[in-house]
Design a protein around this nucleic acid. Structure first.
Length: 424
RNA sequence: GGAGAGGUGGCCGAGUGGUUUAAGGCGGCUGUCUUGAAAACAGUUGGGCGUUCAUCGCGUCCCGGGGGUUCGAAUCCCUCCCUCUCCGCCA
């Protein structure tokens, strides 16, 4: 959510920034509703002050005609307040509804562009392996090795579901453990195991609702939604709280399954485990002082990337242009790994600075040590990393000509010292 | 799932319709005293919104959330959420 004061004072600036995103937002309506809201508020609060005073007098008066007259005068006042309140509620609801649909504004240094073609590669890291045979896609290798079972996944749960089996299941688990261990022991992240079911309120806080309600799974038994990412429960840990400035920055990492109802375009990304309704992810979430958020974004990017350095998997950093920014991000940089079998770059992380956009919705503030008004924190998050695509990257980059897969050195301690996955 | 008891400021806790504009205590902050500290004493104490260039000030709202009754609600009513106790069920 944007600061209403910013929209009120600089509507033209806000409109121009949103135009860069290729989006539209009802800024004029918001300005008018805000004006009307304050107008009503001034009037109704004055009436309320009058009634408070009048009612106090009644309490002090003895029974009698004078008291009765005062009561009926106050009753009349009350009717006017009630009418104005109703109007105020309507204006308030309309204002909230519209504010919730306004996207975050891009940082000044985000390249302006119409769409994904204008994203900017910031750097490419690691050596792409040269194969002396034709590298094969993970769906072939995984099936042959018996570590990915597509058929049975579909039988149980429908299209886009699969099972990992044996060494495949263990490889994913090894990565999850190793990722978390690096974050917690070296990078200062505090591990969290969050709920996978959350209330509507939480999804509103991180801005999946109302804009992306259709992409969420809802339970039928109560106010519970399946989390699309650990970002939701972890960011909402501090919802409605006022933190001490000294507590910042707060770093959390969390492993969780993620559930997304998105409508996949038929015929696209159908093969393999690249895109599904359920996947695992280790997520990094930061709560930082506003002045630090830009630096923290690059730090976050490096904290996620160092996993790939150590896995010796080639990757690149891709900065989103304005036209490809998400609804919530002020700045977003993706990490993509090279998958030689699929012959494409795969997004394994999106590192985003949301500035105060989520904090404002969720009500996450801090008390400045120097005094003055409480401020909203800045929130950031990024995957480190998304598991299915990391499975693809390991399988395809570490494949051997005979169809076996060498286990990367850093993962071997987590694999019971197994060095290779071979056909059973 | 059944029965019962509760939810008041950073914390404890009083308050069942009108000087409670939330008593009192603890903690925090500021001051006096002190070389310094402790103790004592005095003062102070949260959040949102509006008004204001801004501070101050003023107003309004907030006693778990939402709604209602009333001239007036922490207090009465409805509803939802949460906590605790006992029973039942259960990885």
């Amino acid at each position: 959510m944007l600061d209403l004061r910013l929209i009120r004072e600089q509507p033209d600036f806000v409109k121009a920034e949103i135009a860069k995103l290729g989006e539209a937002a009802p800024i004029d309506e918001i300005v008018e509703l805000d004006r009307r809201r304050r107008e009503i508020l001034t009037e109704v609060e004055q009436l309320r002050a009058d009634r408070n005073e009048g009612s106090r007098e009644i309490g002090r008066k003895p029974a009698g005609p004078e008291r009765e007259a005062q009561i009926s005068a106050m009753r009349e006042l009350g009717d006017r307040i009630e009418a104005l309140d109703a109007e105020l509620k309507e204006v308030d609801d309309g204002l909230d509804e519209r504010l919730m649909t306004v996207p975050n504004l891009p940082d000044p240094d985000v390249p302006v562009g119409a769409g994904e073609d204008e994203n900017v590669v910031l750097g490419e890291f690691g050596e792409r392996r040269t194969f002396d045979f034709a590298p094969r896609p993970h769906w072939e290798l995984g099936e042959e090795l018996g570590i990915i079972d597509f058929e049975r996944g579909v039988k149980i749960s429908g299209s886009r579901f699969y099972l990992l089996r044996g060494a495949g299941a263990r490889l994913q688990r090894a990565m999850i453990s190793w990722f978390l261990d690096v974050h917690t022991t070296e990078q200062g992240f505090s591990e969290v195991y969050p709920p996978a079911l959350v209330r509507t309120e939480a999804l509103v806080g991180t801005a999946q609702i109302p804009k992306f309600t259709d992409a969420q799974y809802k339970t039928t038994t109560g106010d519970h939604w399946l989390v699309p990412t650990a970002e939701v429960p972890v960011t909402n840990m501090y919802a409605g709280e006022i933190l001490d400035e000294a507590a910042l920055p707060i770093y959390h990492c969390a492993y969780s399954p993620c559930f997304r109802r998105e409508q996949f375009s038929a015929g696209r990304d159908v093969r393999g485990i690249k895109r599904g309704h359920q996947f695992d992810k280790v997520e990094l979430v930061k709560f930082v002082h506003p002045e630090q958020s830009n630096d923290e974004l690059y730090k976050l990017l490096n904290q996620a990337s160092l996993l790939l350095d150590r896995l010796e998997i080639p990757y690149r950093h891709l900065q989103m242009c304005t036209g490809d920014l998400s609804f919530v991000a002020a700045k977003k940089i993706d990490i993509e790994v090279w998958a030689p079998g699929c012959d494409e770059w795969l997004e394994v992380s999106s590192c985003s600075n949301f500035r105060d956009f989520q904090a404002r919705r969720a009500g996450i503030r801090f008390r400045p040590e120097a005094g003055g008004a409480n401020q909203f924190v800045h929130t950031l998050n990024g995957s480190a990393l998304a598991l299915p695509r990391m499975m693809i990257a390991v399988i395809e980059n570490y494949q051997n000509e005979d169809g076996s897969i060498t286990i990367p050195d850093v993962l071997r301690p987590y694999m019971g010292s197994v060095e290779r996955i071979e056909p059973a």
